[in-house]
Amino acid sequence: MSKTLYVGNLPWATSSEELTEYFAEFGNVIGSRIITDRETGRSRGFGFVEVADEDAERLAEELNGKDFNGRSLTVNEARPRQTV
């Protein structure tokens, strides 16, 4: 099983690959994605990292507030999308 972590306050130039590599230093990463604006294609400054179930809580605690390319990350377990 896996869990998805929300990662906020990312530098605009961050790629999914960079995010995966960074989180892989701390635990088992399955994949990541950066959320982009539909019209401009520019990063919206946040993304999601899918990690092994057993690593999720520890990664969120360890990496929340940690410096990543000059920005202090916000990391917590992602909540399901709200439907309208």
Rank of each mutant, 00 (worst) to 15 (best):
S2Y: 13
L5S: 04
L5Q: 05
Y6A: 09
G8S: 10
N9H: 15
N9P: 10
P11D: 13
W12I: 12
T14G: 03
T14W: 03
S15V: 06
E18C: 12
L19G: 02
T20G: 06
T20D: 11
Y22W: 11
F23Y: 11
A24W: 10
E25D: 10
F26D: 03
F26A: 07
N28L: 12
V29H: 00
V29M: 08
V29R: 01
V29I: 09
I30M: 10
I30Q: 09
G31H: 08
S32L: 09
R33D: 10
I34A: 00
I34Y: 02
D37S: 01
D37I: 01
R38E: 10
E39V: 08
E39W: 08
E39P: 02
T40W: 04
G41Y: 02
R44N: 08
G45M: 01
F46P: 00
F46T: 03
F46Q: 01
V49M: 02
V49W: 00
E50A: 07
V51I: 08
V51T: 06
D53M: 13
E54N: 11
D55T: 08
D55V: 07
E57Q: 12
R58H: 11
R58V: 08
L59Q: 07
L59P: 03
A60E: 05
A60Q: 04
E61H: 13
E62T: 13
G65Q: 10
K66C: 11
